[in-house]
Amino acid sequence: MWLLISILVLSFLIFFHELGHFLIARLFGVRVEVFSIGFGKKLIKKTIGNTEYAISAIPLGGYVKMKGQDDLNPTLQNRDDDSFNTKAPWKKICILFAGSGANIMLAFLLYIVIGVLGINSLLPVIGETMQDSPAMSAGFTKDDKILKIDDKDIKIWRDISDYVSNKNKPLLITFERNREILQVTLTPKIKDSKNIFGEDIKQSFIGIKAKGEIGKVTYKVSELIPFAFNETIYSGKMILLSIQKLIIGILPTSELGGPIAIVQIISQATDSGIIALFGITALISINLGVLNLFPIPALDGGHIIFCIYEWIVKKPLNENVLYRLTIFGWVLLLCLMALGIYNDISRIATKTP
């Protein structure tokens, strides 16, 4: 069952990505010749209008084939009015960006659903105050529940660190103690710390540790859009930071995962319930959207760079250069995929029973 759910989730994300390309292409009058979920042999296909819709044998992917566009051989172009090639560079950029935009929008909508249904989170209840810390000096004690810092409502423990970590001015903290609402003002201190990647950083702190209480947190209608927006931005930033740390060597390449790792993560989320599944689906959707915008020639981001070049110099990139860059992009992607699969298999082989 978990394998079927994993395939359905990935197919749904790919469908949404390709639907973004499809809708904006049609909006700008580009003929879409094929809309396929999956690669390889077409198992099911049906032509409606000028477009062939298909489900193909390999479910880990999908594509929209627009008239005048050939990713394997970009020199094969068509100059008809309904061809992708004849559209203005800004229109082509919109079409190319639409896939990633659809994935990011999908994640945003999933986070709204999560906010409505409620998510189990670490609650902002104090378990301990540190010696000689601002919190201890301000009189905080165990079981105090932080409700607000300045004008920022605190719903989960992460809200505290997100707000305090870069503040060095007095903070007005509203908290609950024995069903009484109290307020106190304190000024954070700067201390040496480590981020999630193990790097040494300077960070503001007030000196409290979480009690460890887990509870279901829901959001009011007025809070849903800010919550979904913040979660989408936070997830996107974490993905970009992780990639940056991989590139500069802070994270080892063994941390790179492939399709097997994705299926395992979806399987674990499925076992944890529908909310966890929605959460991991949103995260993978943002991952798909962000990675497709990277300036690798075989990805949407690479094609966007080509369009920007065309927009600036008023002519397309040389066909031979375009072809060679595209081949390089495909080779790079295949190498990264092979590395991800190798890492997945290595993790499974070395996992203790």
Results as ranks from 00 to 15, higher is better:
W90M: 09
I149L: 02
G127V: 06
N120L: 06
I55H: 06
K152L: 06
N73C: 02
D70F: 09
I126Q: 03
W157H: 08
A102T: 04
D144G: 04
G49W: 10
D151F: 12
E128K: 15
S83D: 07
P74G: 05
K46P: 00
A57L: 15
N50D: 15
Y111L: 05
N120K: 11
F97Y: 07
I160R: 06
K148P: 00
W157C: 11
S133N: 09
A54I: 05
A135S: 08
L172F: 01
D153L: 08
A57V: 14
N73S: 12
V113Q: 07
S165A: 11
L147G: 06
A107V: 10
R79P: 00
D162M: 10
K87N: 06
T75K: 15
S121T: 02
D159Y: 12
N120P: 02
K65V: 03
D144N: 10
M105Y: 11
Y111C: 00
G49L: 12
T141C: 01
D80M: 04
Q77P: 00
L171D: 03
A98G: 00
L60G: 00
R158T: 13
K45M: 11
D150M: 03
D162A: 12
K142H: 09
N85D: 15
Y53P: 02
S83Y: 13
L122V: 09
A98W: 09
N120G: 08
K148Y: 00
T51Y: 10
P124M: 05
T86H: 09
I126R: 07
P170A: 14
L60I: 14
D82Q: 05
M136W: 00
N168L: 13
I114V: 13
I160K: 07
G101I: 08
G99V: 02
F108R: 05
K65D: 06
D70G: 05
S83G: 09
I119N: 14
K148F: 01
N78C: 13
I93N: 04
E52V: 15
L96N: 03
K155D: 00
P170D: 12
T86W: 10
I104M: 14
S161I: 12
N78Q: 12
D150A: 07
L123A: 13
K87W: 03
K87H: 07
F140Q: 02
K167T: 08
K65G: 07
N168H: 10
S137C: 00
D159E: 07
Q131N: 13
D153P: 01
G115P: 03
K67N: 14
M66E: 03
E128Y: 11
F108I: 03
Y111F: 15
I160D: 01
Q131A: 13
K155I: 01
D71L: 15
I160S: 02
A107E: 02
V116K: 12
K46E: 03
L106N: 03
N50K: 14
A98E: 04
L72Q: 15
S56R: 07
A138C: 06
G68T: 01
I48A: 13
G99C: 09
G61T: 11
I149C: 02
Q69V: 05
W90A: 06
F97W: 04
K167R: 15
K67H: 15
D159N: 13
D162F: 10
L43F: 05
G127M: 04
L106K: 07
G99P: 07
S83Q: 10
W157N: 07
N78W: 05
A88G: 02
P74A: 08
V125G: 05
P124V: 04
K169N: 09
F84D: 10
L96V: 07
Q131E: 15
K67T: 13
G68H: 06
I156T: 10
